[in-house]
Design a protein around this nucleic acid. Structure first.
Lengths: 263, 263
DNA sequence: ATGGGCGTTTGATATACCCAAATATTAAAC
DNA sequence: GTTTAATATTTGGGTATATCAAACGCCCAT
């Protein structure tokens, strides 16, 4: 299962490497890319011409940067994920109801990916939210991630722990496999997961899993807010009830939409 | 300027061709891709292994489909476009105020691309909106597109007309270059553009250009609604005033944020 | 004017992509 | 449980082509 065997297309990997470098640098002329990629200036130019023609890169003067094609492709991919279509409106309603950030999270290769985000009127934008949307994070230190892990078969959890590790983000992060598994057991009993400043200091969260008609987990909903606004009954009763209710509504949407899609 | 000269990396183009086919088919096993791409089954397999390893494609049983990496990349690209960051919240507020769909549109190679969309509570989802987000449309038959065209130097307008043509979408679509140019003149005088069922029957829209600190156009805001809800004074006075006001606020954000970004 | 820096083009060569065939794997049929 | 068919995956060898290095041309600064 660990994709590592077999051949790869070197040239395509090179192209993706250029894309990755362009992502790191935001924007760069050829002479700068030349110092980051092991390719001659001439070859780089041919690569960039190819990427530009395909719309994945755009040229602005002599600066190259990632193109809008990625936005379109991303939108396309997202619109074809059933759980996104089923969850979008509910997440909006939920964020408005509780006034905080609400997220739709899905798992991909042991990482968590923010598929959608809605901001309640009390929520304040932080770099944390941007980072969440742009880079895959690990599952063990977020409420949504733990909600997903708790719904995955045990062998998958072991696989993920072994492959990705349990890196600490704050002093509260769970880094011991056994402790994590005990926590996941609690999550299964409660039906929701909490994150008490385990990913970022001063930030708490509550998340609940979204299951498909077949019982398999499709993602998770979560609310994120400063600890000052997420404590006491609100952290332990009120918000957990709202999160699980929202997750349940999404599950119903998913079941009925699933039915419709088969036409 | 018409990128066509010079060499291209054939192998990378092949990889993008596979991605495009995967987009058309939604999801397909190798045997099906084999009938759509001029490549042997074996080579296809190596290509797909490469794409999977990079996260742009995921394998689900023996079906391949586009991967979540596109979502992350799209989000990244979008978050690094100044006009998006300057407009997002304003579009949300605007959609809520008028109750209809509000869009942020930018131009890319003569096409219009929906960078952001916000839905007011009266707005009803249609396939039109999904299509708008997933596929680049032409500029001449939408309000935002005409607002952008009206703000572009004339030689660019001529270029775009020549390259892309003025394809008719409905009976109301402007297909005559001279008529289009007269309309653009009106748009410049008014400061906003209207779309009277020119893109889709039963749908009207109003759009206004967003200009950067240097005077160049960075995109456009638009509202889209059924003709029944967009007529009379609302179509000719009320909404145009709101759209241009929103565009102006975004322009101010853009100017100040631009200043901040330079640190 | 002139020089240097940098993007772009070009020709030759070796790399690695591609095809075809062989092997492994899966699923179904009897 | 065995056989068969259909498909995925691997492998080796020929050849297209991605790569490099060098030359060209452009723009700006001095």
């Amino acid at each position: 299962m660990t994709a590592s065997e077999g051949r790869r297309i070197q040239t395509v990997l090179k192209a993706f490497e250029i894309i990755e470098v362009l992502k790191e640098l935001d924007s760069a002329p050829i002479r700068e890319l030349d110092t980051h990629v092991d390719l001659s200036k001439g070859s780089l130019h041919t690569h960039l011409a190819t990427l530009c023609e395909s719309g994945f890169v755009t040229q602005d003067g002599d600066e190259y940067k990632l193109g809008l094609r990625f936005v379109m492709m991303g939108e396309y991919v997202r619109n074809h994920i059933p759980v996104y279509m089923a969850a979008k409106d509910e997440i909006d309603a939920f964020a408005e109801e509780c006034g905080e950030y609400a997220h739709l999270i899905v798992e991909d290769d042991g990482h968590e990916i923010a598929l959608y985000e809605s901001r309640g009127d009390q929520a304040i934008a932080t770099d944390y939210h941007i980072q969440l949307r742009e880079d895959p994070q690990l599952l063990h230190n977020s409420s949504a991630g733990k909600a997903i892990l708790a719904s995955l078969p045990e062998y998958r959890v072991d696989e993920i722990i072994e492959q990705k590790g349990l890196q600490a983000s704050t002093a509260n992060t769970i880094t011991d496999p056994d402790e994590l598994k005990r926590t996941l057991e609690t999550v299964r009993e409660q039906g929701y997961a909490q994150n008490d400043e385990e990913e970022m200091r001063g930030i708490r969260a509550v998340g609940a899993p979204i299951r498909g008609p077949d019982g398999g987990v499709r993602g998770a909903v979560s609310v994120t807010a400063p600890t000052s606004r997420l404590s006491g009954d609100r952290f332990n009763e009120e918000i957990p009830a709202m999160v699980t209710r929202t997750a349940n509504v999404i599950e119903i949407n998913l079941a009925t939409k699933d039915f419709n899609d088969r036409q």
